[in-house]
Amino acid sequence: MGLPKIKIADLDAETLWNDGHRTIDVAASDTTVLWDSSHHEHDAISTRTFGFWLYMLSDAMILAALFTAYAVLRHNYAGAPTAAQIVHPGYAFRETLLVFSSVLAFGLTMSALKQGSRAGVINGIVVSFLIGAAFLGMEFHEFSGLISQGITPERSGFLSVYYAIVLVHGLHMVFGLLWMAVMVVQIMRQGFTDNVVYRLLNLKIFWQFQAVIWVCVFTVVYL
């Protein structure tokens, strides 16, 4: 690391918000290092997880737009059943418990990952997967019930946005479950390589994100 021979840190404080042409007043000396000869690698895991945080931000914006639509259309019943008639907070509360348990199971998966326990990670993912699948089963039951009563999204603006918002969260769940299944196979075949570890970390972010969405759905739509 021949790098800090001229004191870059001191330079920073002095030049941080100075006017343009005063910043280049540092003279080079014989010890100035022009090329970085340290063999440094960018930290792949941190770069990948940072990118995934950015992706989550974009996903959050999609949901922000959907919740905006919900706020505008929530009372547009157009003669079709109202929210009070079709929404069951008790049922949704049980779904909420499933979402939280699945996230908890995934949290335990992460602590197994810290200990490098392959069996612990795989078991944790399988448990999160099963609880997540149970949630989707409850949701399927709820919506097939509505459709069988003829309460379909094309009957009113409210029903359109109700279906859209709940099912977009459901789609996130489906995608997360698929991701979990792939990760189990990858861990078994490749072990904890850099690629596998950053994907597990991103999956954790994603899984907690869908839980956050569900909390919003539960509070705004069901309560």
Partner: peptide
């Protein structure tokens, strides 16, 4: 969704806006 499934987000009637 409006054009493919017949929902009412942006329609002129049926609770669209």
């Amino acid at each position: 969704l409006d054009r493919y499934l017949g929902t009412h987000f942006f329609t002129a009637g049926m609770g669209g806006n």
